[in-house]
């Protein structure tokens, strides 16, 4: 998930770095100004937990591969959006400085995609859903929706950063967006499953932890929530609408079409269908195919999965386990 160096141009790295630094500084100030001094040790501990939690492998059903938690939404729900954003930034910096995971130049872009959009934007979505659905079920429902949305929104944001880094660089942006969001809508389902599972377990065992953390932070959000929902919505719209905006955006294709119009008597529709087909026998992956893939996989499949998960977790929460002692160990 982390952006390695070399994918983004230094200009984009600087720009995203400035935005991320601003958001991070604001989050840090919010953290230092909160009434309870408890948030400081909580944030550090939460970052350590997310770091360790990302290393726990979740076996995927049907495929011999592993998935893992990303944790942006989880951190935001447990400790509030500002502490969540700081915690994710801490995790990213530790991974960069201990493992060289994620580039040093693209640290700002990583913080923007996963900390700011992932935690603050994810929390905004969570808070909006929670307002609609009351009670513990709303917490779980909100966490599932927010986890999926944050992953897809982050991938859309990466595509925009990538396109800005390589102006006129030999690829078709709408198709890249379609590929990335389709792929990440699958990853998002995994993240939503893990986050929803963890939150529903914690809600069943220690509802006070989530309730206490989510309330006061929700009151703080206010304008931030509006901005968060707005930016996430814009990114999602970009992700799902961009694949359709092919005609104007794709310069090379337009040129090719023009040439075909002038010299040959090709009907343009045939050309559009043909020029993106893969040179494999019997497999014609046209541009339209990718458009359909983007919308059908990312939209319909994701939404269906989320509805299914919500129903499932809703049932899990209903038969709440008898409260046992949370943590006598350690």
């Amino acid at each position: 998930m982390h952006i390695a160096d070399g994918f983004l141009s230094p200009e984009v790295c600087v720009a995203t770095g400035v935005v991320a630094a601003g958001a991070l500084a604001y989050s840090l100030r919010q953290l230092e100004q909160t009434v309870s001094s408890r948030t400081i040790p909580l944030t550090g501990m939460l970052a350590a937990l997310i770091f360790a939690g990302q290393m726990v492998k979740f076996p995927l059903p049907f495929v011999p591969a592993y998935g893992h938690l990303l944790g942006g939404v989880l951190a935001a729900i447990v400790a509030g959006p500002w502490a969540g954003c700081v915690a994710i930034s801490l995790v990213l910096l530790l991974q960069m400085a201990l493992f060289a995971d994620g580039g040093w130049l693209s640290y700002g872009a990583n913080v923007l995609n996963m900390g700011v959009v992932g935690s603050i934007g994810g929390y905004a979505v969570f808070a909006a859903v929670r307002r609609l659905v009351p009670g513990h079920r709303g917490i779980v429902f909100g966490s599932v929706v927010a986890a999926w949305v944050s992953v897809v929104a982050a991938s859309a944001l990466f595509c925009i950063e990538f396109a800005l880094s390589h102006p006129g660089g030999g690829f078709s942006l709408p198709t890249v967006v379609a590929l990335m969001t389709s792929f990440h809508s699958l990853i998002g389902v995994g993240e939503a499953l893990i986050t929803g599972g963890i939150i529903s377990y914690v809600v069943a065992q220690r509802p006070d932890l989530i309730d206490a953390a989510a309330r006061p932070a929700g009151a703080v959000a206010g304008v931030g929530r509006l901005v968060g929902i707005g930016s996430v919505a814009a990114l999602l719209i970009a992700a799902f609408v961009a694949p359709f905006a092919t005609e104007g955006a794709d310069g090379l294709e337009a040129v090719a079409k023009q040439a075909a119009f002038d010299s040959l008597e090709h009907p343009p529709r045939v050309l559009v269908l043909d020029d993106y087909s893969v040179p494999l026998p019997g497999v014609g992956l046209s541009h339209q195919f990718w458009q359909r893939l983007s919308v059908s996989v990312a939209g319909v499949f994701g939404t269906g999965c989320i509805l299914g998960m919500t129903w499932m977790f809703g049932r899990l929460v209903k038969r709440t386990l008898p409260a046992t002692e949370g943590g006598h160990g350690g």
Partner: peptide, 30 residues
């Protein structure tokens, strides 16, 4: 696979609860 998945989720959730409890104790000590 479902049982493995479920127990892994519980493992991380329990780790979360214990970490939050520990941060509470750390805060008291601070």
């Amino acid at each position: 696979p479902w049982a493995v998945w479920n127990s892994t989720v519980q493992l991380v959730a329990m780790l979360l609860i214990r970490s939050l409890n520990r941060s509470e104790r750390v805060h008291q000590a601070m």
